[in-house]
Amino acid sequence: MRHLISPLDFSVEETNELLSLAEEIAADRSRFSHVAEGKKLATCFYEPSTRTRLSFEAAMLNLGGSVLGFSSADSSSAAKGESVADTIRVISCYADICAMRHPKEGAPLVAAMHAGIPVINAGDGGHNHPTQTLTDLLTIKALKGHLDNLTIGLCGDLKFGRTVHSLINATVRYPGVKFVLISPEELRLPGYIRKDVLDANHIEYKEVDVLEEVMPELDILYMTRVQRERFFNEEDYIRLKDSFILDTKKMRYAREDMLVLHPLPRVNEISTEVDKDPRAAYFKQAQYGVYVRMALIIKLLGLEVPTC
């Protein structure tokens, strides 16, 4: 039985296969609307994350399956002190597949070790969030047509942002990928990722702190939130925050086919005036997130796909 716990659990070939299936789904959703009939997805969310939970539920409903679950620790047996291992053993009797979100790192792995059904990590603390990474890959693949030979700009909080770290890990597996790391000094990419991932794979990258300058080079601009609490003082935050906000003025420097991605929710790091720009892909990204979860459920459950 396969699970999805870490973004690198699937090989490049398996990932490509999954993305191709997701693209087929995007092209003709109705063909897939009965493939999971009679199957149940349990969403076990020990902390609320409405967006992720609804994306999983929408995916299962689109496949003709049904959903059950809980959306916070206090509405679950965890509040009574039940271990993750025991909970998943019980859930395995009720459902065919489980998406688990947990504030503690490694909880979905513990679940996978004791489950009788496939477990999908829907986010474990600041650790992994593999379906977000698959969503990002699908968005790029579907809108750009390829995942290799891309210059990817990563902007904002590169120090704590796990989506950025996972995306780097996943995209370095494709040839010809370069990175432009755009962040304030205080929020630069951690040294171990530069060393163990970028340097170890001989990946070309540069670190800058002005977004405008590098805009013309980018195929993808991946925006993340710069949080106030990451700064030591208010002045630094105010001084720096505008440099990392994307607005129409900065978009003028970008190529016509550049894509703007963002894991959402956004706060103010992308000005709403950018939403109308055809290069803004972050709402499409949310749609691709449902397609990639549909593909993932089909793969992990080994469901038959009707041919067209």
Binding site: S83, V84, A85, E105, G106, V110, H127
Partner: peptide, 13 residues
């Protein structure tokens, strides 16, 4: 020793 690790709250793991 990671306080965010699941082992920090589940003693039997």
């Amino acid at each position: 020793k990671n306080p965010r690790c699941i082992t920090s709250i589940e003693q039997e793991l």
